[in-house]
Design a protein around this nucleic acid. Structure first.
Lengths: 216, 216
DNA sequence: GTCAGTGACTGACTGGCGGTCAGTTCAGTT
DNA sequence: AACTGAACTGACCGCCAGTCAGTCACTGAC
């Protein structure tokens, strides 16, 4: 039955088409602005069809986020490969992360910040489990960079890599979250601050906190 | 006309009653779980009446958040007053902040994290402007602690207080955000990490990054 | 060639919720 | 007693995620 194989391919193509449509819309409208009707319209399908491919809106969003992270991880890995110390690797990792968020702010605000969203989100779907796997993977990159830094002496040895990696990650998240929606933030904070300088500032803080005493 | 004065008091009391009801509900249901019908029910009013006191749901939420922050600020100020250095003040400030979030996680997750919410929120209401004022105030406490630390030598002099205060604040936000909903996070991250240790870890990082070279 | 089976797709519909507004109530005024 | 207006009400509206009974196109068996 070559038919079944073709059907499978076609199905996968449809799924990708839906993801394409959703990705464009999520960038322009944000998560809450994303309408399933609009996705259906953009994908030239009826709304009901979307639900044959994704359990619900959150599952669709998780799949979009997963695809986005999948473009980020290889970049990070290649950047890390060219570093001489673990501390440098952490720095490169975060910088790559930043460049991506700078390129496609809406996408990554969504893909990464979503994780920390306080509000209810359906995390029971298969799509979400896959997304979770990607996040775990990114976190593991931070952990191994720290471990490597401890081995080569660039990072303090009195820290526990896993919790520290989470600290680095989550604090970065906060900075990115605020830095990404400058327009809204400048409405919400009176202080005349250029939010673009926030990220390098934080990067510097993280490096200072991780570096071994003697390191430059 | 003593009548007008009494009316004004009664009106204020109603407003407070609505806020009481909303505060309880926002703690148990979160922002998205908060239903205006439920608030009306809890306040023993009809839904329409809520809109005589608050322009919309976001304005109501901003007012709740403002009240919560108003309980936090005095505590922070008294804690700061008893410190010997600016660096110590920053530390105490963040710790106080933490204790409050630990006591009433749902409340402060809402009150503080809300600011950084990526999603659209009506920030045009008067209630929101007042809320914004409180956030500015909290931020200014961080700024002055840093300035003080630079004066007394406990904090590095090569940093710009305002952006650095924002960096401290926003990175803390990220950590708090994740740390607060441990249950959900443990669903979203496979790593076996005790999220409670995240906050002290971050506190330590912040202090290390701010401290002048020679300081202990 | 036909026809029953199968999977893809559709769009009208439901239910939940934020927000509205014409109408009711009643303390206070004249 | 008649009037005024502020407080309050709840039925109603529009929007949107999610559903489901029904249609359509293709396939493989006979």
């Amino acid at each position: 039955m070559a038919v079944a194989a073709r059907r499978e391919r076609e199905r996968e193509a449809r799924r990708e088409a839906i993801l394409d449509a959703a990705q464009v819309l999520v960038a322009s409208e944000g998560y809450h602005g994303l309408r399933m009707d609009a996705v259906a319209e953009a994908a030239e399908l009826s709304k009901g069809t979307l639900y044959l491919y994704f359990e619900n809106k959150d599952a669709l969003c998780a799949a979009v986020a997963t695809r986005l992270i999948d473009t980020l991880i290889p970049s990070i890995q290649s950047r890390i490969a060219n570093t001489t110390t673990g501390l440098e690797a952490v720095k490169q990792l975060l910088e790559t992360y930043c460049e991506f968020t700078h390129d496609k702010p809406q996408h990554f605000r969504f893909a990464l910040a979503w994780l920390s969203a306080g509000e209810r989100m359906d995390d029971s779907t298969e799509s979400f489990q896959i997304y979770r796997g990607r996040v775990d993977h990114m976190l593991s990159l931070v952990v191994s960079a720290i471990v490597r830094g401890q081995a080569d002496g660039s990072i303090r040895k009195d820290i526990d890599p896993l919790p520290q990696a989470l600290q680095v990650w989550t604090s970065f998240l906060g900075v990115i979250l605020v830095g990404l929606n400058k327009e809204a933030m400048s409405q919400r904070i009176t202080a005349p601050v250029d939010l673009d300088q926030l990220v390098p500032l934080h990067l510097d803080s993280v490096v200072r906190a991780l570096a071994s005493e003697g390191a430059s």
